[in-house]
Design a protein around this nucleic acid. Sequence first.
RNA 1: GCUGCUGUAGCUCAGUGGUAGAGCGCGUCCUUGGUAAGGACGAGGUCAUGGGUUCAAAUCCCAUCAGCAGCUCCA
Length: 667
Amino acid sequence: MTSVRLPDGSLKEFDSVVSVKDVAKSIGSGLAKAAIWGEIDKQPVELDFEIPSGEPVDLKIITKKSPEALETMRHSCAHVMARAVMRIKPGVQLAFGPSTDGGFYYDIESPEPLTEEDFPAIEKEMAKIIALDEPFERVVRPRDEAIKVCKDLKQEFKVEHIETGLADDETLSFYQQGEFVDLCRGPHVPSPKRIGAFKLLSIAGAYWKGDQSRQQLQRLYATAFFTQADLDAHMEMLEESKKRDHRVLGKRLGLFHIDEMVGQGLILWTPKGSFIRQKLQDFISEHLVRQGYDQVFTPHIGKLDLYKTSGHFPYYQESQYPALVDRDYLSKLAEEGCSCSQLSNKMKDGEIEGYLLKPMNCPHHIKIFDSEQRSYRDLPIRLSEFGTVYRWEQSGEIGGLTRVRGFTQDDAHLFVTQEQLGEELIGCIELVKVVFAAMGMEDYSVRVGLRDPDSSKYVGDPKNWDLAEQACREAAQTLGKDFDEDPGEAAFYGPKIDFVAKDCLGRKWQLGTVQVDYNLPIRFGLEYVGADNQTHRPIMIHRAPFGSMERFIGLLIEHFGGCFPLWLNPEQARILTVSDKSEEYGRSVEKQMLAAGLRVKADYRSEKLGAKIRDGQLDMIPYMLIVGPRDAENGTVSLRDRSKGDLGAMSVEEAIAKFQKEVQDKA
RNA sequence: GCUGCUGUAGCUCAGUGGUAGAGCGCGUCCUUGGUAAGGACGAGGUCAUGGGUUCAAAUCCCAUCAGCAGCUCCA
C-alpha cells in the first residue's frame, strides 16, 4: 500500500505501486496535464518516480503555475550558468546566485572580466550542460567539512559566507552536477531538462554582500522560462515596457528637457509638461483649501545658521550643493591665503555665514510658525508650499524625472498637539488617497516605518513614539488596503508612512510620504500656549502626497503611457481638415472651441487626412475633430477618439458639452 | 560614488584607419485627398569635449563631460 499526504493535509491511499503522475491523474486530468514534477518530502522528483510504499509521504505536485516552480527552475539555471562560466573562464569565484522577479543572476569574480561578447559562448556551453542531463545531487556536510570543501574548491566567498552568514548552521547542503559543486540550500529541478528557454541579459557591477566598502563583483543577469514562447513573450513585454518609459515619452511628446549645459538632474519643463504640472498643482491646491491648509511662499535659499539649527548642516553636507558665501568676505579670505578645507571648517564652526540652497522646506515653514506666539486655539496650523529643493544626489543615481537634483515637493508641515496627531495623520492619508484615486493609480504599496526597538538613535519620548506609531498604523488602515510595517525604517525623528509605486521597468520609487517629527520642534524650541496657560511643544507632520512633482509626473507619464486624460492633456483636441477647402470652416470651429475654454489646436496642412490622423495618434491627442465639406454644410464635426476611433458626426455644441463633461468628471 | 556599455543630422540609428550615410522630421513645390504614412526637390553634421598615436582618426589609446543598466546611497 502506498499513501501520500497532499499539501491540504488530505491523505490518499493506493493499493498498487503508483508514480507521481498517477497521483496527479487521480486528483484530476487537468492537474496531470499541468504537472511538471513532484516534491516528495520536499525533494524534487520526476513525474514517473514511483512512490515508495509504507509510511505516508508528503507529496506536492508542481505545475508551471506553482509560484515556486519557475523560481526553482531559474535557480537551477543559475547553477548551469555558473558552471558554464567556470568552464569558459577558469579561476572564477562564485558569490550568490538567486532567482529574481524577472529571472536570476549570479555574482562572480573572474580573473579576466566577462563582457557581453562572452554571452553566446556561455549560452552555448549552458545548452551543452543541459543536454548532458546530469541530475542536481544534494550532498549534506557538517560545518568543518563544508568549509574544507569550499576551500578545496578555492571558493573564498563561500567559505566566508559559511563562517559568517551561516554561522549558526550545523550542517550545510551542496548541490553537485558533474564536476560542478556549489554551496546551496536548494531545491533544484529533478532534471536539467526541466530548464526550458534561457537567455543572458546583461552584466553589471554589484558589491559583495551589498556593501560598498567591499569588493565589486560582476553580476550576470539572465532569465529563463519553461517554454521558448514564454521567453519570447517576456522579451517582447520588456520591449513594450520600454516604450512607456517617461524619458522616451517625455522627449517624444515634448514634456520636459534636460540639458547638459544647465546641469545633471535639473529639469527644464517645456510648455506641455509645464501645463500638466500646473494642472496637478491646481488639483492639489483645491484639495488643500478643502482640508484647511494655508499656502505660503518661501525663498530658495536660507542662511547656514538656519540649517545648523535644523541639523541639516553640516550633517548632510555631502548631499547638498556647496554653500554660497558673501563675495567680499570670500576675497578677503583668499587674500589671507585661506584654503578650501579651512573655508569648509570655518563654515562648520560658524565663523563664516553663508547661504545654502534649501535641501528641505521645513526650516522655512518652522520660522513662519515661530513668527508669532501660538495658542492651542490656533492649532493645527497647516502650512503648504510647492517648494523647490536642491540636493546633491550621487551622479550615478540621477536619471529622468525620478531622481533629480532640483525638485519641487508638494510639501506641507502641520503643527499639531499630541491629541490632534491621529486625526491629522488620517487627514494626510485621505489626501494621498484622493490624489492617487483621481489619477487611477491604485497600484502602489504602503509602508509604515517604525523604530528599531534595539536602537537608541531615536529622538523623543518612547511613550510618544508608541502613540505616534499607533496613530500611523491607524491612519494607514483608513486606506482600506494592505500595508507593511517595517521596524527600523522610521526616521530618527519619528515614524512615517510611505507610498511606493513601480516604474515601467519594475523599479520601486517612493512617492508620497507622511512623517511624524519630534526632533525639529525641539531643535527650534517651538511652543504654543495650552488651555492650562503653560507652554507646550507642538508635534510636526511633514507630508507630500506626490512626493515631488518631478517624480510623480515621471510615474504618471508611464502610468498613462503618455495618453493623458482630457483634463490633464495640454492639447485636448485637434481639428483636422479633410482638404484646404475646409480651412475656413475649421477656423470657425477652432474659435468656438477656444471660446468655450477648450485647448484645441488645428492641422491645416495640405496633407491627406490619413496622415493627419496618424500624426494626431502619435501625439496621443484625446480627440480629433475632422472637418470636411459635409461638416461645413451641416455645422458638425466628425469626432475621433484616440482609442475608440471614429465616433461619427455631432454638432460643435454637442462636442463642446461632451468635452466639458469629461473634464468635469476627470474621466 | 563604483563597475560595465554608449555618445554620428532635430529624432532613431548604420558606418570599425583612406571623400560623412539612411529613415523619420523640417523647408519649397506639385497634389485637394473623409478616419493610421501621396509625390518631387532641397536644406541640415567641427562625428560629445580635450589630448595622444598615425602619412591619414568618426573609427585606435588616454582624460573629461553626459546618457543607459546594475550596485551603493536617498535627511
